[in-house]
């Protein structure tokens, strides 16, 4: 089915030929063990150092890794951690969903209209540099210390980078593809949906990946700054801070990190890998 025929020796290489002769590239499919053991090993090393540091200090200052793990487990089982994580996840789903749709649409529009791009992009870049924490007081003034304020901050956190990433991805499409499409008779909406979006997709997904990370950070920081007033991981951290529960703080850190890795590995990384395989090392 696959047709790798090697270029003859001394062949002139174009960038097509540079990109992958399947016969030459050996992609070692890393086994599950190869993927899981190294990070676990690293965690074990960290845990060891942590225990050494924690041994001399009381649990209220620096709990041992074991204490944290046990407490995390307890929280998950009957401490209400499940619903808290669920709440954060659902806020993320809605917030990220909105910023993804609006961001991609905005990015596509800016890519098409240079005038709008020149007008709007500097502000997007400015927004991107703004730590979302700064938005929170503003959001609170307009929307109260509520989950709506948190949602607003989440969306604002992600939107600029998704829009910019999308715009850049469209700009990065080789012009020859667009010319070929135009010669073939593609125009307007067909061009956008059938050519521009598929061609820009790897870049768009990268933008979404970054946007997700921004959104998540904005969400947790937002809840944390607003203070303990609702369900959600950030609120949980605020409560733990107020009560001086260091073990809870670490538990929250652990769970937040795990969530981030899970979404990346199971979501974005998989998607990116599939896109790259289809196109042979990225469009």
């Amino acid at each position: 089915m696959v047709a790798p025929s090697r270029p003859a020796p001394g062949a002139v290489l174009t960038h097509d030929d540079d990109a992958l002769d399947p016969a030459l590239v050996t992609t070692s499919a890393t086994s599950l063990a190869q993927r899981i053991l190294p990070p676990l090993g690293f965690a074990a090393a960290v845990a060891l150092l942590w225990s050494l540091a924690a041994a001399r200090r009381p649990d209220s200052v620096l709990p041992s890794p074991w204490t944290v793990l046990v407490e995390t487990w307890r929280l998950l089982l009957d401490g209400g951690f499940g619903p808290i994580i669920g709440r954060t996840a659902s806020t993320m789903a809605v917030g990220f969903g909105v910023s993804a749709v609006v961001g991609v649409a905005l990015g596509l529009a800016l890519a098409r209209r240079p005038l709008a791009d020149r007008a709007v992009s500097p502000y997007l870049i400015g927004l991107q540099s703004l730590p979302s924490a700064v938005w929170i007081p503003v959001a609170v003034i307009f929307l109260g210390a509520s989950s709506r304020a948190v949602m607003a901050v989440t969306i604002l956190g992600a939107l600029p980078s998704i829009a910019i990433g999308t715009r850049d991805a469209v700009h990065g499409i080789p012009p020859i593809l667009l010319r070929a499409a135009r010669t073939l008779g593609a125009d307007g909406r067909t061009m956008l949906v059938r050519i521009v979006v598929p061609a820009a997709l790897p870049g768009i997904v990268s933008g979404l990946e970054h946007g997700w990370a921004f959104a998540f950070r904005s969400l947790v920081a937002g809840e944390l700054i607003i203070g303990a007033s609702g369900a959600g991981l950030g609120f949980f951290v605020a409560t733990a801070r107020d009560e001086g529960r260091v073990d809870h703080l670490f538990a929250a850190v652990l769970v937040i990190m795990l969530l981030g890795v899970a979404v990346d590995r199971l979501g974005f990384a998989r998607l990116q890998r599939r896109l790259r395989e289809q196109r042979g090392f990225g469009a």
Partner: peptide, 18 residues
């Protein structure tokens, strides 16, 4: 303007990679 009545074949293939 461009038209499929005048098809172009480029040096780089310009095929759609997806």
């Amino acid at each position: 303007g461009p038209s499929r009545r005048r098809m172009v074949i480029f040096q780089e293939h310009a095929l759609f990679p997806w």
